[in-house]
């Protein structure tokens, strides 16, 4: 009892919350409640990210996913909802299809995840090392920022000689500058495209209501 592993404890906590609310999203038929459960599920997932030492990604998940995308989703729900508390109805055959496909997929993924011994966690010898690694606050923001600009400082650890470092730095393909630029342009395109799509037009008279 003395040796409670806090990483495991918080992993259990966050993963149970994430999974339980993900299932609640599926089972709920009220769309606003679905969005609420999704918020909790994604927030718990960001907790998992923090736990796994990816603090920048965790904060990003909270900021962009939960704080941005989901507010947008709820906004969309409110804009398109026709009456208060409309219930979503699902057809029986889509449930059957979904559950069959889902259970099959889950079985496959579980089998794969548990199939590799090395993924089951650190070995006995690595235990102390792991404890120490998780006891330290992680600092990933600067390396990720560098990587996005094409400088992989995390790859420099191998050799301390300037020549080896130069080789890594001139490797070219190790950084993410090009994907970063592509994503920036992509976001700009999305910004313009979404604004164009969602602008108010004269409504057509063929509406069914």
């Amino acid at each position: 009892m003395d040796a409670i592993n806090w990483h495991t404890f918080f992993f259990l906590l966050f993963s149970l919350v994430a999974c339980a609310f993900a299932i609640a999203v599926v089972l709920s038929s009220n769309i606003v409640r679905m969005a609420f459960y999704l918020i909790l599920s994604l927030a718990a997932t960001s907790g998992l990210f923090f736990l796994a030492g990816a603090d920048f990604v965790g904060a990003m998940q909270l900021m962009i996913y939960v704080g941005g995308t989901l507010v947008l989703l709820i906004f969309g729900v409110m804009l398109t909802n026709q009456g208060p508390y409309t219930m979503l109805k699902s057809r029986g055959d889509s449930w059957l299809l979904g559950v069959v496909a889902g259970v099959g997929l889950l079985a496959l993924l579980t089998y794969t995840a548990l199939g590799v011994r090395d993924w089951m966690g650190p070995t006995e010898e690595q235990l102390a090392e792991t404890q120490l690694a998780f006891a330290q606050p992680s600092a990933t923001a600067t390396p990720i920022g560098n990587a996005l600009l094409g400088i992989r400082v995390d790859k420099l650890n191998g050799g301390n000689e300037p020549d080896a470092q130069q080789q890594v730095l001139q490797g070219g393909m190790s950084g993410y500058l090009l994907p970063f630029e592509i994503v920036s342009v992509h976001l700009l395109v999305v910004l313009i495209g979404a604004a164009h799509l969602a602008r108010t037009k004269k409504r057509s008279d063929t509406r069914s209501t």
């Binding site: 992993f11 993963s15 998992l48 796994a52 650190p122």
Partner: peptide, 11 residues
């Protein structure tokens, strides 16, 4: 016990 990548994969 410490958790491993497999547990995260399950989630």
């Amino acid at each position: 016990q410490p958790v491993g990548a497999a547990h995260y994969l399950l989630v």
